[in-house]
Amino acid sequence: MIFRSLLAALALMFVMSTATADQRWQRVEAVTQALDNRVPELEGLSLELPLVAEDGSSVSLSVSFTGSLEDGEHIEKIRLFAPGNPRPEVADITLGPLASPANIATRIRLSETQQVVALAITNQDRAFLTTRDVRVTVSGCLVGGGDASAMAMANPRLALAGSARPGQPVTVRSLINHPMETGLRPDGQADDSIEQQLVESLTATLNDEPVLTARFFTGTSANPYLQFQLTPEEEGELKLAWQDQKGEQMEASQAIKF
C-alpha cells in the first residue's frame, strides 16, 4: 500500500518533470520561428549527445529519424539549436531523397550547460522535435591550448565508411579545417572582437544531382564536420563544395562505384 502510493507519487513527479522539461524549447524564439506554427511530434526523432561534455568547444552530436513516414514522405530539413549559446543557431541541413535515411552527425559548440534542440521537417510539412540536456564542464585536467589557425579553409576531406551498393545507404564523412570565428570572442583588445568568419555552407551533389546542403552557424565547432547517409541508385561522382563567408570555395570529390 505504502509502496503503491510511493510509486504513484513518483509517477506524478515524473509526468510533471517531463512536462516542464519538454516545454523549455517553446520559449526559444529561434525554435518557434523555425516551427512556424507547426505542432511538432515529440516521438520519432532521436538525438544523441553526451550527458556530460568535458570540452564544450567540440561536442559530438548525432540526430536520426526512427519514426515512421508516409509513402513518398521524407525528412527534408534538420535544424539544430543550442539555446544556451550566445546565438542559438547551430546548423540547418536540407536533405534530398538521396540523403536517406535521415541520419546526421556533426560536432557542435556548447558555451554552457543547456538543452539542445533538434527539429526535423518532412516534405509533407510534418515536424518532429526532440531535446537533450547536456552538462558542460571543463575537466580539471583539460585546459585547451589556444592556437591561432589561419582564417581560410584548408584540407577538405571526404570519405565513405564502407562500400557503396545500389539502393543501400553508405555513411559519408566530411571535414574541412577552418577556425569558425564566431565574431563574439574578444581578441584581447578592449571592446574589440575578432571579425566573424564562418564556413557558411556545404553542398553535396551526386552526378550534379543535389544530395544535401548544410548551413553552418556559430554553434558549429571549428573545423566543421558533417556525416550523413547516402543511398545512391547509380554510380558516379560525389562532390562536396564548401563556401566561406567571404565567398571562397573549396571542393572534394569521391567516386561512387558498386
Binding site: M13, F14, S17, T18, A21, L51, D133
Partner: peptide, 9 residues
Amino acid sequence: MKTRFALTF
C-alpha cells in the same frame, strides 16, 4: 528518464 530522476534528486 534516468537523467530526469537524477536532476530531481
